[in-house]
Design a binder for these strands. Structure first.
Lengths: 222, 222
DNA sequence: TAACAAGTTGACCCACCGGTCCGGTTATGT
DNA sequence: ACATAACCGGACCGGTGGGTCAACTTGTTA
């Protein structure tokens, strides 16, 4: 819209920048429950201005998350040329988890309709991951019965697991990435009990704690 | 209270039962964000009645969750006598994940103050798990550098991972339990990159999406 | 500098949610 | 059958959060 039609007014551009910065910080600190009002206050602008730039809170979140996703995809692409395919995959997972410490992307796996540009970027990222996984597999670094989807699904697990320990050391997640990655190795291990799922997602599912619009598809929970 | 003083009136007992059933169903479908009003409606009783039985939404959740936790602890205790310690641990993790399909207990790992009875039960459960893990370790079924805490933390991962795939087959989680459990095996695998955390929790941290009381400890998110 | 469009703002709207309260209802013991 | 205490329910309260709007300000362009 504004970005294509006109060059955007000077003050508007400034506001947009500090809005994005504030949103990133706020989402990182409070999670998806961060309120638009708080973000606006932090950015030093009025709440109305937020909605002028992004018609919806979800769109704001999408904007914040977009470059992280693109960055991850770029990293994956770079790592696809590294000789040691196994090490490349591990490094990617390391980087992914590391960045999740700052902002949870896990909802990306389900939110099929967050934003057109975002879901496009997500698609690219998933494709790059697929390349990484298949290379690692061809190199014998991970077992043959692993599908790229599996890695995508497990990608966020280390961060999630660690999010439950109170004063977690900043790199505790590496421990769990280590365990999970060892589970991907071809060493011992019998056959897996279930085939991988078809796809991660493409239907509209909402990020948890975001908008209680429909009857909600229900995250299965104990 | 009511359960100790007096035998509880007939209609009250009936209402309490249907309330618990409704709460369980609603929490399972909508997660922690299920509203008390919805639960009351589903139970066919007034909202006031809900609060008469449980002073707080959190207490209601605790009541719903309590017997599941106790059931899991009982299972763990039973499995502690099974000869094959490795198989016993795997079976426990299988049962735990299986029940999580119905109601997510992951918040147990952080909610230190949900309810006295609940956190007591949780303590027992964790202790039983510790026994299971140490036995499996002594039997050489899982690697020596795994701590019981690790298993507790990873326990809910398979369910969580699967919660992102749209129309997941009901036992897809077994695939990821398989991968993770393989990561616990003593086979190949170098040393783990980080020591285990001290404890899972004992300080008051709120379940996500439950009450926005304090400034929130912020689930680290990407 | 004049004039207009683009941008800004915060009061306002509305829906939701946890929790309270009191007038009315009903089970229960005698 | 009656008295009574336990119980029920829904209107109500205070707070919150996403989103709207009309009046006002400001950058831009001629």
């Amino acid at each position: 819209m504004t970005s294509a039609d006109r060059p955007l007014r000077a003050d508007a551009a400034r506001n947009r920048a500090s809005l994005l910065a504030a949103a990133e910080a706020e989402f990182a600190e409070r999670g998806l429950t961060a309120s638009v009002a708080d973000i606006a206050r932090r950015a030093g602008i009025g709440k109305g201005t937020v909605f002028r730039h992004f018609p919806t809170k979800e769109d704001l979140l999408a904007a914040v998350v977009l470059d992280r996703v693109d960055g991850l995809a770029a990293l994956a692409r770079r790592l696809a040329t590294v000789p040691d395919a196994g090490a490349a995959l591990l490094e990617f997972l390391d980087a992914a988890a590391s960045r999740q410490q700052q902002l949870d992307l896990s909802f990306l796996r389900e939110a099929g309709d967050l934003n057109d540009r975002l879901s496009e970027s997500r698609g690219r990222l998933f494709q790059e991951i697929t390349v990484l996984v298949e290379r690692a597999q061809a190199a014998g670094a991970i077992r043959a019965d692993i599908a790229p989807v599996d890695v995508i699904l497990l990608m966020c697990a280390p961060t999630h697991v660690v999010s439950f320990v109170p004063d977690a050391p900043p790199d505790l997640w590496r421990r769990y990435l280590g365990i999970i990655f060892d589970g991907l190795r071809p060493d011992g291990a019998g056959p897996l009990p279930h085939p991988p799922p078809e796809a991660v997602s493409d239907r509209p599912v909402r990020a948890a704690g975001m908008p209680p619009r429909g009857p909600q598809p229900a995250t299965p929970q104990l």
